[in-house]
């Protein structure tokens, strides 16, 4: 009996030790309420941002309030959402402003009510209008694909004839990417290698029309920069319709959406893209507000949420990640 008791004691000690080593503890957390206001939900980019915010909030035991506008320019919905979230007792709000300036008053009222406001994806003008900004370094994204495009064109022995399919005048995201691309390519605005620059509003159909017009005037275009992936898909459609030899055209873009990663980058139709990560904006944003409430760590300034160059056809001298990495870390479905 004694031996059995000893065995049982040893057994119990082993199991308790195993359970203790394997177990974890859950502490009581101070309640936190976070608001997330996106631009719209047509684009999977914003859906991904909301879903990651929801997952992060659940992990951190944080209450999440969400709202979205109806389009990329719907200011009124965002103003209303800001006021409602303040009234509901949000400790902090993450907002992707549809207008860099028009929301300033509503943001100030929220801050005066003691609410922390962080801009995600799109900076405000001025940036100091919010407590902090969590966004892609768009100039860096443009620079990465610019360097790739220059190296790839050299590898193919092309004399660059560049078309840039841009966003809209006055929108900082598009201007920064464009400037970054030129810098990465090693040229300046007005360089003779740039044969066309057209605005597409980042829209697939408008980009297709614009690319068709560019090809009509400059059939020798061999480097195509697109401000985002919908514009890249539109340009691709126009190039295919024109019977262009894609092996002799370098196409680069910015975004990192899953569909384009699988259908454009993996088959090599888009030579390279600079991924951005709405997942990081949401995750870091929710965590920052939770930390501010629970730990007193006030977020300030700008957080670069990351960008990586993805290509299925890497070139020497330009660091890039494989397309498998792009598929694993892309957003949308």
């Amino acid at each position: 009996m004694v031996r059995r008791g000893r065995v049982h004691t040893l057994l119990a000690a082993t199991l308790v030790a195993g359970a203790a080593l394997a177990g974890c503890t859950q502490e009581d957390q101070e309640p936190v309420t976070v608001g997330l206001i996106t631009k719209q939900e047509e684009n999977p980019y914003w859906v991904e941002m909301r879903e990651v915010a929801q997952d992060t909030a659940a992990d951190l035991d944080v209450e999440l309030l969400t709202a979205t506008g109806e389009s990329d320019t719907d200011v009124a919905s965002q103003e209303r959402a800001l006021e409602e979230m303040v009234a509901e007792g949000a400790d902090g709000i993450l907002i992707a402003p549809t207008d860099a300036e028009a929301l300033s008053a509503a943001i100030t009222r929220a801050q005066e009510a003691g609410v922390l406001v962080i801009a995600v994806d799109t900076p405000t003008d001025p940036p100091e209008a919010v407590d902090a900004t969590f966004a892609t370094d768009n100039e860096r994204a443009g620079e990465l694909i610019g360097r790739y495009a220059a190296a790839k064109a050299a590898e193919l022995g092309l004399e660059p004839r560049i078309a840039t399919l841009d966003l809209t005048p006055g929108v900082s995201t598009g201007e920064q990417r464009h400037a970054g691309f030129l810098s990465g390519f090693g040229i300046e605005e007005g360089d003779a290698a740039i044969v066309a620059s057209v605005d597409t509003e980042g829209d697939r159909d408008k980009a297709a029309v614009a690319m068709t017009q560019v090809l009509a005037e400059h059939p020798d275009v061999n480097v195509v920069y697109t401000v985002n992936e919908p514009a890249a898909l539109g340009a691709l459609a126009a190039l295919e319709d024109a019977g262009a030899d894609m092996d002799q055209i370098v196409m680069v873009s910015v975004d990192g959406g899953c569909r384009t990663m699988r259908e454009g980058v993996r088959p090599g139709l888009i030579d390279a893209t600079a991924s951005q990560y709405p997942q990081n904006m949401a995750r870091e944003g929710v965590e920052a507000i939770a930390d501010a409430v629970r730990e007193g760590d006030q977020p300030t300034g700008y957080l670069d949420t990351g960008t990586e160059l993805i290509s299925d056809d890497p070139v020497e001298g330009v660091e890039s990640r494989r397309v498998e990495f792009g598929v694993r870390t892309c957003w949308g479905s």
Partner: peptide, 30 residues
């Protein structure tokens, strides 16, 4: 998540490795 590692500092990366390896450790300890 892999994408979150793209913006981590060296110290944060080590902390994430420790956290992930703890997840691996637990089933084997059981």
């Amino acid at each position: 998540p892999e994408e979150s590692k793209t913006i981590m500092s060296e110290a944060e990366l080590v902390a994430s490795q420790e956290a992930d390896l703890l997840l691996v450790l637990r089933p084997y300890l059981v």
